[in-house]
């Protein structure tokens, strides 16, 4: 009985050891935002990288705040996020080695079709937010320190309004984009969303429509609604960081071929791309 138990443990350990054999792929830990993961973009792109470099990519899809913290702690090798100012701080503080443009899409302000604040068709998001605050119409904020939340706070500042979560109309949820859109749909609230997630979930959001930002990115007249994504390899001085693979990943992600794939992703499903390529090699092609 006891011998059998020992044997079982030995076999289990041996099996575990085999799994981490030398033929195993290199592992890249990618900390990124829920928007890139939820849109399905990474699933479409990453197999190409994995086979080309005999690597495995572990995607940790979290808010921008946590993605940057993971990098700060050396718990990720590379971060792919969308909060330009905070990305620059991240590099300036030495947590990352350099930042590269990857792609962009845009934000739109969505709201209930009844439009109680009368913002439909306004060209600037800040004006719309001003009207919403004046009407005290319900507004759902991500409230989770994400890239979208950071953008929203910047827009309120531009509108000259200090949103106060103790006010009944301003609802700070601390939830992901999908959950926030569902909340807005249920409660007839306005909210700021990236266009990609809104398009992907549109079928279940019957009560909502785009108020500011138009039906495609070309119709979006507010430059403040642009949403650029950057990629940053984590500083190798954190220890245990796979900097070599991280830099290969940055080169690969910004290469013309992959950029083309990014620009084509989503056309078949949504009739328009979810992301637009924006890397240096792409712009210089």
């Amino acid at each position: 009985m006891r011998n059998r138990l020992v044997l079982l443990i030995v076999v289990a350990l041996a099996a575990a050891a085999c799994r981490s054999g030398s033929n195993d792929p290199d592992v890249l830990r990618l900390a990124t935002t829920t928007s890139t993961a939820d849109s399905g973009l990474l699933e479409a792109l990453l197999p190409g990288f994995e086979s080309q470099y005999n690597a495995r990519v572990d995607v940790i899809a979290v808010g921008t705040g946590q993605a940057l913290s993971l990098g700060e702690a050396g718990d990720a090798d590379v971060v792919l996020v969308h909060a330009r100012d905070r990305e620059d701080v991240f590099v300036a503080e030495g947590h990352g080695t350099f930042r590269s443009d990857v792609m962009y899409n845009d934000f739109v302000l969505v709201g209930p079709i009844a439009d109680p604040a009368g913002v439909l068709g306004m060209s600037l998001a800040a004006d719309a937010l001003n009207a919403i605050a004046a009407a005290e119409a319900p507004f759902a904020s991500r409230g989770d320190d994400s890239g979208t939340h950071t953008k929203e706070l910047g827009l309120w500042e531009a509108a000259g309004v200090v949103p106060d979560p103790t006010k009944i109309w301003y609802q700070s949820l601390g939830q992901g984009m999908g959950a926030t859109l569902q909340f807005a749909n249920e409660t007839g609230s306005y909210t700021l969303t990236d266009r990609g997630t809104f398009l992907a979930q549109r079928a279940t959001l019957s009560a909502l429509d785009v108020m500011v930002g138009g039906t495609t990115i070309d119709e979006n007249a507010d430059p403040a609604l642009l949403n650029p994504y950057g990629v940053i390899p984590v500083n190798p001085d954190k220890g245990g960081v796979n900097v070599h693979l991280a830099e290969q990943f940055v080169d690969w992600l910004t290469s013309v071929d992959v950029q083309r794939q990014i620009g084509e992703y989503g056309i078949g499903t949504f009739g328009q791309p979810l992301f637009y390529p924006d890397s240096e090699p792409w712009k210089n092609r």
Partner: peptide, 24 residues
Amino acid sequence: GGNIEGRTRVLTTAIVLETRKGNF
């Protein structure tokens, strides 16, 4: 509850939120 600040935010949802914000 929806984790609305000041209305439906409880300790566990606040923990999830702060973790996601990186405020470990």
